[in-house]
């Protein structure tokens, strides 16, 4: 009996491993390949080995010291990515928090309609909106400025942010607002002293969402920016593709560096992200 039971246990574990190992390989393969390139010397990177004979950090040194004409603006572009991401995160938070508060807590007239319009925006496929957005930025005279990208990304991040924040703030007991009203709070005091502190976890989730969305964005950045000095790191990476003589190992190294901050931020705020974002993503 006990032996049979334990055999069953072993077979269950084996079956789980049979799923788990392929899942791990599938997930890590492209990322490992990226890292492999990054620590391989130029000549051995393409030898098809799973581990370089002479691992080196030389590629990182070249990237950080901008010793290649493709990398002339590496730090500048890194900075651009950062500024744009932070600006999108902050502006999205500003716009979405006010809207969610007005719709969910102040129950402003027409709030529901605005929420539906925002949702509708959320369901426009990103690449479809890119074409008119590009033309519009031309009309506004913002093309090839970082403002174009910041504003476009905010417009894309805001609807989902409002939705998530509204879902979260609908869960706060309404009596809190009433108690605050009776205690003498003005709408703005309610917002500042009661609403914001209680919404902090969701605000972190939404801010991170918008920030990562902007940092990771390729299409809009690629369309709206063109000057080398204004580019984000992502677009600069794409530009490596233009030439046949691209330094692949440097491209991969830069790619790895570009991928690290969002992964780190995601893991740092994972606690807020998973609950905050998936809960609102699909209301079941």
């Amino acid at each position: 009996m006990s032996a049979g039971f334990s055999w069953r246990k072993v077979s269950t574990e084996a079956k789980l491993l049979l799923i788990g190992i392929p899942v791990a390989l599938w997930t890590l393969l492209p990322i490992y390949h990226l890292a492999l390139f990054a620590i391989s010397p130029k000549d051995s990177a393409m030898s098809g080995h799973l581990w370089p004979d002479h691992p080196t950090l030389r590629n990182f040194v070249i990237v950080f010291t901008q010793q290649h004409h493709y990398l002339e603006y590496f730090w500048r572009q890194m900075w651009n990515s950062l500024v744009i991401a932070v600006a999108v995160g902050a502006l999205t938070l500003f716009v979405a928090t006010g809207a969610a508060f007005a719709i969910s807590r102040l129950r402003v007239k027409g709030g529901r309609a605005v929420m539906n319009l925002a949702l509708l925006t959320y369901f426009i496929p990103a690449a479809f909106l890119a074409v008119p957005m590009y033309k519009t930025m031309g009309v506004y005279g913002l093309l090839n400025t970082q403002w174009a990208l910041i504003l476009a990304m905010m417009a894309i991040a805001a609807p989902y942010s409002i939705w998530v924040l509204k879902q979260a703030s609908d869960k706060l007991p309404y009596e809190l607002d009433e108690a605050a009203r009776i205690d003498g709070a003005s709408p703005l005091q309610l917002f500042r002293l009661v609403y914001l502190p209680l919404m902090m976890p969701s605000l972190v989730a939404v801010g991170t969402y918008a920030l990562l969305l902007a940092w990771n964005e390729y299409l809009y950045a690629f369309l709206l920016l063109s000057n080398d000095r204004e580019l984000t790191l992502g677009v600069a990476l794409g530009n490596f593709l233009a030439a046949d003589d691209s330094p692949w190992e440097l491209l991969m190294t830069t790619g790895l560096i570009y991928a690290l901050p969002p992964a780190a931020i995601y893991y740092a705020f994972k606690r807020y992200m998973v609950g905050g974002l998936t809960a609102g993503a699909v209301k079941s």
């Binding site: 990771n216 991969m252 969002p262 992964a263």
Partner: peptide
């Protein structure tokens, strides 16, 4: 494993897709 599994979603598309391309 589930923590690791999220990576493709958390990192930007371009480096990983380029990695696929070179593979």
């Amino acid at each position: 494993l589930s923590v690791l599994f999220i990576l493709p979603w958390a990192v930007p598309s371009i480096p990983t897709i380029l990695s696929f391309r070179f593979m």
